[in-house]
Design a protein around this nucleic acid. Structure first.
Length: 188
DNA sequence: TAAGTGATACGC
DNA sequence: CGTATCACTTAC
């Protein structure tokens, strides 16, 4: 209970990791305090064949982190404005990652010793949540760990029903755009 | 429905 | 080098 998720958790099929990340605590430590929120929406990007995945281009300066070890962070800029948060999955050498798209029960604590206070019930949108949690590309390729300032813990909470849908915003991905690799919690 | 914003990958 | 495109958001 409340243990940090380690490399083994992420070194598995991306769709399983994406689904199991729902209902886990995402922690983010900043100079002003610690945020945490339950992960409520994810998408799986799995393998070089997946035309929806940036890794379908092969190894490039941007995508090489997805070919690296699981449990590391992939952050990139989209539309010149929004940072997208992903966690690398699968064994080293196999490119894959989970995009974090939505949060539930965002809380904030001013220090390790203070208790967490509720901020927002829902944080929808992958670009908005990174802005809220002060996540930028300087976290790219780093490891999920308290020393990095971002990590995941078990919450001991059952998310309830999880809905699966196709992934958002990848119309160019041919048949891959229909894969039901988006996971949305219904915290009831 | 369209504009804003800049990094990326690819063609030349 | 130039440029089309983009795993988005907000305001009309």
């Amino acid at each position: 209970m409340n243990a940090m998720l380690n490399r083994d958790f992420f070194e598995r099929d991306t769709r399983i990791v994406a689904k199991e990340l729902i209902g886990k605590w995402l922690y983010r430590k900043t100079p002003t305090g610690i945020y945490r929120a339950l992960i409520a929406e994810t998408e799986a990007y799995h393998g070089q064949d997946d035309l929806g995945c940036h890794c379908s281009k092969g190894v490039t300066p941007r995508t090489k982190v997805m070919f690296g070890p699981p449990g590391h962070i992939y952050v990139y800029l989209i539309y010149g404005m929004y940072e997208m948060l992903n966690f690398v999955t699968m064994p080293e050498g196999f490119p894959a990652a989970v995009l974090i798209r939505g949060l539930y029960r965002l809380e904030f604590s001013t220090s390790e010793k203070s208790s967490f206070q509720p901020l927002h019930l829902k944080t929808d949108g992958p670009g908005k949540l990174t802005r809220t949690l002060k996540i930028t590309r300087n976290l790219n390729s780093k490891k999920l760990h308290p020393e990095t300032g971002i990590w995941i813990e078990n919450a001991g909470i059952e998310p309830g029903k999880i809905i699966t849908t196709p992934r958002i915003g990848i119309d160019y991905a041919k048949e891959w755009k229909h894969k039901p690799w988006r996971y949305v919690a219904e915290f009831s």
